[in-house]
Nucleic acid binder design. Structure first.
Lengths: 226, 226
DNA sequence: ACGTCAAAAAAGATGCATCAAGTATCTTGT
DNA sequence: ACAAGATACTTGATGCATCTTTTTTGACGT
């Protein structure tokens, strides 16, 4: 269960926020989906206040947008914006991988290898949701090993924005999604920072290719429709 | 007047959020300062709801923390956390400078030089507040020239966290704060990406030295007190 | 004077009523 | 059958009442 709460104590709004973050990162929302505060309040069994709070935080994260004062929707993602996010991830996850390579313990390596094994199994089972989650878990392990909490928060926010756009791309990606994870672990074992950085960059650029294609095609389709 | 609103239309909560962001970035709050929703509501002449909304967004930005359910304070900044923010800035502002160097127009260069001139004047006048603002304006110009809105948002959030900690450091820094800005502009003129990146990195690491010292000394003092 | 404990005030969390603006629906006249 | 206007509904924004927990305060005993 991911720990998304910025607040130190438990709040209804944090519970709702965490649940919506989960849903977003698992691709359970589609871009453009409309959210209604009263509907969510009923689903969560709370009043509208904690829902408003959570939605406001997600809007602050730019994961959802207020298209008009009464029209709350899952944010879209232009190709340019996705490319920017990718460029930022290259820099930041590169930093995380370099730092992680310097400080990784054997316990860290074992945890990464465990994730890889489970990810292989999920792909073999055709379990798309689990595959997505384990891929994310791998990426978030690096800043955690590196001891970089600010970086983790930034990446989480970027993933919230990507979440609704990666769901279908995973099937297209298939095994290619984790192929580049193995060299990362090997580099961490050798405490080889440059190699770790290069490997994670490869993963972001090559492994993420199907996602970019999907977003680009989506824009094209939309342009033709107009 | 900075444009902080994530929301597209004007809201009381956006107005409050923008005002508090401004205050934070100008160092008008000290770390550990306590905020009271009802007091702020009176100051802004609104009910508590828009204030709660704005504070929730700032908490989401990790600029303020809820130490306990009824104790809202300006966030502290450990030395480790400041070093992490600095490392992230090196990567991200490096990316912004590289990109800006590739696309900068002569109008962009003129705007940067204008900021530098005003910053010189502010330092000559001993106007600490204006100096801080113009230094920030320079740094935010690079991602703007580069056309990287996501990057701008991330940097803004980091600056919200640094804001309360850089106020006094500026006097100590003095002219050194903008010395490294000139090579940045020169590099942009030559469309020299590596030089632009190196220059801004120098600025972050060397120009920011007094801030790090101040935070480190503050921690030391606190440790002695305990 | 000082510490302790209880009463009171403070303060955020939650729920809810109301408002305004936008949207859908229904009626009515041709 | 259709269009136009009016009516009702939807929905987020704002304000506010209440609840619970924390903090302050002050009285009392030592």
């Amino acid at each position: 269960m991911p720990e998304f709460a910025t607040l130190e104590y438990e709040n209804l709004n944090s519970v709702v926020y965490a649940a919506l973050c989960d849903a977003l990162m698992q691709g359970r929302f589609q871009p453009g989906d409309r959210l209604k505060i009263r509907d969510l309040a009923e689903q969560f069994g709370t009043s509208v206040t904690p829902i408003r709070d959570a939605i406001l935080r997600l809007a602050n994260d730019e994961a959802i947008t207020f298209r008009s004062p009464r029209d709350i929707r899952i944010a879209g993602l232009s190709e340019a914006r996705y490319r920017e996010i990718r460029a930022i991830r290259v820099r930041l996850e590169g930093l995380a991988a370099e730092t992680a390579a310097q400080v990784a313990t054997s316990a860290d390596i074992l945890a990464l290898e465990q994730i890889l094994r489970e990810n292989e199994q999920a792909i073999a089972d055709g379990d798309r949701l689990k595959g997505t989650q384990l891929n994310q878990a791998f990426h978030f392990m690096l800043p955690q090993i590196a001891g970089l909490p600010v970086l983790t928060t930034i990446l989480r926010r970027l993933w919230l924005q990507m979440g609704p756009h990666i769901s279908d791309a995973y099937l297209a990606g298939g095994r290619a999604m984790i192929d580049h994870h193995y060299p990362v672990v090997e580099a961490l074992k050798r405490h080889d920072s440059p190699a770790a950085s290069m490997a994670i960059v490869d993963d972001i650029l090559l492994g993420g290719k199907p996602i970019l294609d999907r977003i680009a095609h989506g824009e094209e389709r939309e342009a033709r429709r107009a």
